[in-house]
Design a protein around this nucleic acid. Structure first.
Length: 524
DNA sequence: GGGCCCGCAGGG
DNA sequence: CCCTGCGGGCCC
């Protein structure tokens, strides 16, 4: 089931069930009959904390695969600094005008499909579903989507490798396991604009739109990243950042008149086909093949294109193995790999390690800390606006604050006025939520039990004697359930032997490092 | 929160 | 070389 959403009364629902319920004009919780906030009913969003919890549990369960790293070619990549930088030429500093940092993975820009462990020599784990970056430049460095602004990565005569869902096109329609995507173009970008919401001519199947159609025809896997900027989708990350959600296949494409009513847009039906479960589901498995969804707008479609039944898609489901794989050889890359040399790899690895804080406690703090006490959440509660706090902290914050303000001034009594109580993290008024009797009386049902159980499980690990960070080999897998985190203890390797020495010497372009920006944490 | 503007990276 | 593009920071 999809564990996705939590009502203010503390009950979790699968998004699809929630949507069905709300569609029946029922605006009260099935379990306790309390009111469902209007905003949540109209625009439900997945609960990032739950997503983070699911992912953390998943990643910690499966030790990252460790293969032998292979590096293929060396190009100018090593001249780039580790992080985004602004060049001498740029008049303004900051990431808005930044150039990309090094590419960490050893795939060419026209690589199709998931990014496997052997192309991730720094961490040896590949790019995992649910991986999260602060912005598009960081995302690019891990190869999930190479373009900084454009949404479609691809070449007209060759295919599209990845797309991003960022809310740039009103016609997009996201259902998680499948979505309808809109082509690019048809807009007036004169006057040095990068984007423009208004369509002013028809889109055509050329350039990147044709690249998508080519991927459809061949049945290639297309990597998909979702951005927080997609506000209408229930499946997009909530607060900030960009998330890798796995590969999808384009099953059909067509054109139709866009939502703006005048001009045609290109349309694509994407269906998920990844061996890893989607970030928002608690399922243990990836996507089994399923029937295509019914698309009402196809009635009005023109230029419909579907992959022929006779032609086996390049990326397909192997029934005997029970997983998706290349049924035909993936297209040979026409570009070279931008790889790092081994020394740089080591220095980046060190930096990533340092930034990641590998201890379980640090992971916990990072993913599940309470914004008020800065400690790992104790009895987490989720506000209607999606922020998480210790139950105690939230109560404490508003302790002694009256819910209503008495307005009587001397003479006659006026009706008392409601006090606005702002969420400590955003301007939302949560006074109604705070009045929820289940929150006031100590009752576990208002606590986010899903998140709490993950935290409890992880906390137990902390109690265990922590395996020495580098004290020779992992060895001490005393309990086989031992939670192993990415890049965790079993590193050994030469690492420390040559500490300093390889400060990346300034590249040809002078740069002002902006950004330290700290590794993206799951927004809580 | 909306509009503006910028530099970059990729395609052709 | 020029054109295009579902960013990101800042100003209002």
């Amino acid at each position: 089931m999809d564990i996705l959403l939590q009502t203010p009364c503390g009950h979790n629902f699968c998004l699809k069930c929630f949507q069905k319920w709300v569609a029946l004009k029922k605006f009260t919780c099935v379990k306790c009959c309390r009111a469902i906030p209007r905003k949540m009913a109209n625009n439900p969003r997945i609960n990032d904390s739950l997503v983070a919890a699911i992912r953390l549990a998943r990643v910690s369960k499966s030790a990252a695969p460790r293969g032998n790293a292979k590096v293929y070619h060396f190009i100018s990549n090593q001249n780039r600094p580790d992080q985004a930088f602004t060049t001498e030429r740029a008049k303004r500093t900051g990431k808005a005008n930044a150039a990309s940092g090094k590419i960490y993975v050893t795939i060419p820009p026209d690589h199709f499909g998931p990014i496997p462990a052997e192309n991730d020599p720094i961490r040896n784990q590949g790019v995992l579903v649910g991986e999260f970056w602060a912005d598009r430049l960081d995302c690019r460095q891990w190869g999930a989507h190479f373009l900084h602004v454009a949404g479609i990565a691809g070449q007209a005569d060759y295919g599209a490798q990845s797309v991003t869902l960022s809310g740039g096109y009103a016609d997009d329609e996201d259902h998680g396991e499948w979505f309808l995507y809109t082509g690019s173009g048809g807009r007036d970008l004169s006057g040095n604009k990068r984007t423009n919401k208004v369509q002013s001519y028809d889109q055509t199947f050329t350039k990147s739109n044709e690249a998508l159609r080519h991927s459809c025809k061949m049945g290639y896997p297309v990597r998909v990243v979702r951005s927080h900027k997609e506000k209408r989708s229930a499946y997009a990350p909530g607060e900030k950042g960009v998330r890798y959600d796995g590969v999808y296949r384009i099953e059909k494409c067509w054109r139709k008149v866009g939502i703006q009513g005048k001009y045609k847009v290109c349309r694509y039906l994407f269906v998920r086909c990844d061996n890893e479960p989607a970030p928002w589901t608690s399922d243990e498995h990836g996507d089994p093949p399923s029937d295509l969804p019914n698309i009402p707008e196809l009635k009005k479609a023109t230029d419909l294109f579907e992959r022929k039944d006779t032609e086996t898609p390049s990326w397909g489901f192997d029934e005997s193995e029970g997983r998706w794989k290349w049924m035909k050889a993936p297209p040979a890359s026409r570009k070279s790999v931008e790889a790092l040399d081994p020394e740089e790899r080591r220095s980046i690895k060190r930096a990533i390690k340092a930034a990641q804080n590998n201890s379980v406690r640090d992971k916990l703090l990072k993913g599940f800390s309470c914004p008020i006490c800065r400690e790992v959440m104790n009895a987490p509660v989720t506000t209607p606006c999606g922020h998480n706090f210790c139950k105690g902290c939230l109560e404490g914050k508003f302790a002694g604050v009256a819910h209503v303000r008495d307005r009587s001034r001397g003479g006659r009594t006026l009706r008392s006025q409601k006090n606005v109580m702002k969420c400590p993290c955003c301007p939302t008024d949560i006074s109604e939520f705070l009045q929820n009797p289940q929150l006031i009386t100590i009752s576990s049902s208002s606590v986010n039990t899903e998140v709490m159980s993950v935290i409890e499980a992880l906390k137990e690990k902390v109690e265990e004697p922590a395996p020495e960070e580098e004290g020779g080999e992992s060895s001490g897998n005393t309990s086989e359930e031992n939670m192993e985190f990415e890049g965790g203890s079993m590193e050994s390797e030469e690492e420390e032997s040559q500490m300093v020495g390889s400060e990346d010497e300034p590249p040809t372009k002078k740069m002002k490092l902006d950004a330290e920006q700290g590794a993206a944490t799951a927004s809580v």
